Amino acid sequence: MLRPLWTAAGLLLVGLGVVGVILPMMPGVVFFIGAAYCFARGNPAWEQRLLAHPQVGPHLVAWRTRRAISARGKRAAVAMMALAAALAWWLVGWPWAGVSSAALLAVALWIVTRPG
């Protein structure tokens, strides 16, 4: 009964992942990880297609097996977060930029501590 909902959620996340590949400040792989999770519960054949994808699949398998993020992915994520923090300070200012910068710093520290 829940399989169609898991599949729909997976499709939504794949769509967001595609948008994330195109837009530089939106993470793509995170949404593909979520899509694989949903497809595992809703449509295992689609999960396997996602895991076998030549561009996305290796990142998903690395995350599933070792909770690893590639060095290139870490650099890109931290660079985009630094850009987002700089834009927040320029556009929003104190105190909201400080709050968002603290959150971005916490996430960046978590990302760089993952295996590569």
Rank of each mutant, 00 (worst) to 15 (best):
Q55G: 09
P27A: 15
L50S: 04
C38V: 07
G93P: 11
A79D: 03
L12E: 01
M1T: 09
A9C: 11
V99G: 07
L16E: 08
G57F: 06
S101D: 04
A103I: 14
C38E: 00
A62F: 04
R49A: 08
A71H: 12
N43K: 05
R114Y: 06
V78S: 04
P4E: 13
V92P: 05
L50N: 01
V112F: 01
W90C: 06
V92N: 08
V78A: 09
Y37T: 04
R49C: 02
R3G: 01
R72Y: 03
L50E: 07
V112R: 14
P24M: 08
A106N: 01
V19Q: 06
E47S: 03
R41T: 06
V21I: 12
V78T: 07
G28S: 15
P115G: 09
A97W: 01
I33D: 00
P58C: 13
L105Q: 03
A45L: 08
G17F: 02
P44S: 04
Q48K: 14
P44K: 02
V107S: 13
A9T: 03
W6E: 00
M81R: 09
A76H: 11
G15Q: 09
H53K: 08
A84D: 11
L50H: 10
S70R: 03
V30A: 13
P115K: 12
A84V: 11
A86N: 02
S70Y: 09
A76R: 15
V112E: 07
V21W: 14
P27K: 10
A77T: 12
P54L: 07
I22G: 03
A68E: 15
A68P: 14
V112A: 07
A9P: 00
P58L: 10
L2W: 13
L87Q: 10
V18Y: 04
A77V: 03
V99L: 14
G34W: 10
A40S: 15
